[in-house]
Design a binder for these strands. Structure first.
Lengths: 347, 347
DNA sequence: ACGCTCTGAGAAAACGCTTTCTCATAATTC
DNA sequence: GAATTATGAGAAAGCGTTTTCTCAGAGCGT
């Protein structure tokens, strides 16, 4: 029972195409043809090969396939922070959508280290058939330079001008304006925006939106307060918020709002009776806070699956340079219980 | 300026080792040696090669390397549901720890479809150097059969007897007992356990723990209520909880507890004054609910990084069959504001 | 000055697969 | 029945690396 000429190195080798070929008494090529259904193979032989394959539990080695086919059936995603529910949701949507088409996703977390992003993205690209760059913190110039080298690329929360790479963005500017408008309609006259990370493009968009809002509502007092993007930064801002004297708070996102909510609660300040608070994103937790959070809903699951669709389009087209879609989502204000008319409307 | 014999197929080929070799006037082999610093190379030549490499922006193709080296520097993780913060945290911990050692992670979400788990795990294994199986829902028998085929394998929340694969588990049984004890100590006499998914091994552990608890506290009334593992199932149980007449509620996990918290709030029932609620896991959101949730803290970030350490040990040892560690974590009860003495202790 | 060891670079095999190329055999046509 | 065309399987080239094998030339000792 010789193992043939293949028994050269390891005895406990993983079963390869050669083993199946030997067992079925055919050539490597024929096994490959049968496994991939590529060319016509005599039904009898095909059956023999298939039988040998199942008997040996043969599973083609994906690395070998990848090298031969020039594709890995894998896409990469680079996120600034995997702890952020927004990015988790995008990752999830992407992963599920991609899986439906037989693709897997490789993840890379830049941990908000801007300088790592380009490296991670490049590495991911070399291992994968494409890359999704999620809310990159790098500069526009850097992004512009990097984009072409990544080519099958989908951008989330950023856009490029030079190359026409598909991008998915959310109109944060509009969303924050609508939230501000909501507060004003309720009767609030003194607002605070608790801003997010400086490198965040979406934070800049919110600021631009609020500038616009100021022009349209010169009668409203709108203060800016520096913050971050997580619970803790919201919590830490509690005192500053209280002493601001504002009655309506626009938090950078839901996480910040939740941190703030908890801080206010500890201080015995009632929401929404004393202060109204809004979030942004409508993460799944937002409607379960106490009180449920008024926020601007970003269709976060769709983002992931649409990202995959755009990626797939590029992978399939390969050659033809089609015009790439620039999708923009408008957040929808979700009014819950964390906002209400202020107790005393100042004269 | 001929491209040499390499210009056979695509003009816009990706730059390969051959291009560098040609430019530096050396052989493929030498370029490889320089890039990997494997063998001694004449400093002059090495410099020439390196110069050529940077000029051409040469980056070795990982697929080629993987084939040659028999490793991918990638590990896979299979989770039942990427929407669950617990698994997200594990994924994150794993990803960050692995990245520190130059490894990437490929994710697979079985979406709670038990029959997919084995397939996904197998596929992941073929593409990666190892697999982390996170809270698999499959039967013990299936797991026992699958484990050896996955070999560099780390199990989370499950164990195997046959193969000695390292496993990380949490003593859910003890944790839930401690929470129950906490409620009893506060004066509660009527408790409810709002249980989780049936296929979940950790749910079974909780049930076993509570059986034990019952034996030790025959005087306590402990009801079981069916539920799930997310917000909605907690929210949906609100009525059943209220009509149970219990004053202390042990929710399957923090998500369920949060859903319940919100349901109780809507019904005007105060927590903890009227009813005490506990969660499990101590997800980041738990301390920001209103009121902050009493829960059993699972060291969730450590789980991910420890999973990587165990994986790395196996990858490095390769040959030597070392005894594999079975790590067990004891949850630590985190007392917050969602539990308190019941208003009226029944006679 | 001759032979020996040692250093270092190129040739070639290997990794596991797909696919083109080639050719034998069977099927078809006049 | 001989020439022509389908059909289908094997041989071999490639995919992009690493690594073993081989060998030329430099350095050394006597």
């Amino acid at each position: 029972m010789g193992r043939g000429h293949m028994a050269r190195r390891n005895t406990n080798r993983r079963v390869g195409i050669a083993d199946v070929a030997e067992k079925a008494g055919v050539s490597h090529a024929t096994v490959s043809r049968v496994m991939n259904g590529n060319a016509a193979v005599d039904p009898g032989i095909a059956a023999r090969v298939r039988a040998a394959a199942v008997e040996l539990k043969y599973q083609p080695n994906p690395v070998g396939r990848s090298l031969a086919l020039g594709k890995t059936d894998t896409i990469g995603i680079v996120v600034p922070d995997l702890a952020n529910p927004t990015f988790q949701a995008i990752l999830r949507g992407l992963s599920i959508a991609a899986a439906q088409d037989g693709y897997r996703v490789l993840i890379a977390d830049s941990s908000e280290v801007t300088s790592e992003e380009a490296i991670l993205a490049g590495e991911a690209r070399r291992r994968c058939d494409g890359v999704v760059l999620c809310a990159p913190r790098m500069s526009d110039a850097e992004l512009e330079e990097l984009a072409p080298t990544l080519h099958p690329l989908v951008l989330i929360n950023r856009t490029t001008v030079a190359t026409n790479t598909p991008s998915l963005s959310v109109d944060y500017g509009q969303g924050i304006q609508e939230l501000a408008q909501h507060l004003v309609t309720l009767g609030h006259r003194r607002l605070v925006f608790l801003s997010g990370p400086e490198h965040s493009a979406s934070n800049r968009q919110r600021l631009v939106g609020l500038d616009q809002f100021r022009k349209e509502h010169p009668e409203i007092e709108l203060q800016m307060l520096h913050g971050g993007s997580n619970f803790d930064s919201g919590h830490e801002s509690t005192e500053a918020i209280i002493s601001s004297g504002a009655t309506g708070i626009l938090a950078f996102n839901d996480l910040v709002a939740m941190g703030l909510l908890s801080g206010l609660h500890e201080r015995g300040i009632r929401v929404p009776e004393d202060i109204s608070v809004t979030g942004f994103d409508d993460i799944p937790f937002a409607k379960y806070t106490t009180p449920p959070l008024t926020t601007a809903a970003v269709p976060i699951n769709e983002l992931g699956s649409l990202a995959w669709r755009r990626m797939r389009e590029q992978i399939q087209q390969a050659g033809e340079a089609a015009t790439q879609a620039q999708d923009e989502f408008s957040p929808r204000v979700e009014i819950r219980k964390s906002t209400a008319a202020p107790a005393l409307t100042p004269a």
